[in-house]
Design a protein around this nucleic acid. Structure first.
Lengths: 203, 203
DNA sequence: GTCTATATTGTGATAGAC
DNA sequence: GTCTATCACAATATAGAC
């Protein structure tokens, strides 16, 4: 066997993550989580009191994984395009290992945006740092002038969208061939980087 | 008053669309739809038999509105970049009038991809037409070489993502100011078009 | 801590009066 | 066609034995 799985609490969290990410809060059932964890339903309540509490534990961790610290990554001293490449590659790699993350986070935030209040608190996201640095690059004539906020949304969207819209795209463009789509997602890393480089390179 | 609202069936459909798009299938309640329609719960079943049947009626229409006929729009005889501009503008305009559409469709397809089987049937999407035309433009040296499938995903993602990720982006980048974000979405039309043009223009 | 059994409420769906 | 009343079951949560 792989692992005897340490304590019960961690088993529950693992099972809950699997089920919540697959079904969402509204679609998930405590019974299904218990089955997935190989234990009884009552134990979930013993450890986490309620479905809401259990969900919050999952969501918090998932959210921090999902929302990248753009500014942190970007404030190194590497050249601008190298940073873009490093970001896109590492972010898509992370999504390849957590393919359900995008739709889970996007959907839950959409249905219950108030959760962000609890999450963002003390969460050091500073997009201004990146915006400032990008402006400098623009003024130095190194890149084509683009609104940094639009660019951040663009860059994130290019990475995330193929995961969120997978059922549609895989069917319409790839005859529902999962292996082909996996290759497509791998290609995205270079495709997105090159696309961005072309768009930002001054004429 | 605006309209006395014609027949009961249409009232139900309107109410169902409002609630389903806001809450999703799992989160929607027949009682809430009845309240929204200003009538009794039993009437919904009288007209549509089940929640599933009612949902299908909503989903089918929404899906056809969401998935744009890329090839149709692109097979006119206008220059390539004009087509891009026309597409992005009209598509984002449509989303501005139906802002909940993206997350609704993406999420429902993700949770129940089997629905696509019933929907796509007889649904004339032919991305090959667009891919072919784009290849010709590339061979003619009019645009930078890019995989048409990646480009289609990119173009759609640039339009859709700001609507699907609105709760997150609006909060992180716009201090949760809805009016500012509305302006941002309007700017997207030109931003996306210009970004694509820059990326595809040969050096 | 972990289980079985049960309480309690929510929810889709139907029966039947009008 | 439209309503009220109700059924049947699903789902969260708790009580209590071990």
């Amino acid at each position: 066997m792989t692992e005897p799985e340490k304590n019960t609490e961690q088993q529950i969290l693992n099972a809950a993550k699997t089920v919540f990410l697959k079904k969402g809060f509204d679609g998930a059932r405590m019974q299904e989580i218990a089955d997935e964890a190989g234990m009884n339903k009552a134990l979930l309540h013993y450890y986490f009191r309620s479905k809401d509490k259990l969900f919050d534990a999952i969501f918090q961790e998932a959210f921090q994984q999902f929302l990248p610290r753009v500014s942190e990554i970007m404030t190194s001293d590497k050249p601008f395009f190298e940073k873009i490449w490093a970001f896109v590659e590492s972010y898509i790699d992370m999504l390849l290992e957590n393919p359900h993350l995008p739709m889970f986070i996007l959907n839950e935030l959409y249905r219950h945006p108030e959760r962000l209040v609890n999450i963002v608190r003390g969460f050091g996201i500073q997009p201004e740092l990146f915006a400032l640095q990008m402006k400098k690059e623009i003024e130095a004539g190194n890149i084509h002038p683009v609104d940094p906020r639009h660019f951040m949304v663009t860059m994130l969207g290019l990475c995330i969208f193929p995961f969120a819209a997978r059922p549609m795209i895989q069917r319409v463009l790839f005859e529902n061939n999962a292996e082909e789509y996996q290759k497509f997602l791998l290609q995205r890393k270079t495709e997105v980087t090159l696309f961005i480089m072309n768009a930002l390179t001054p004429k």
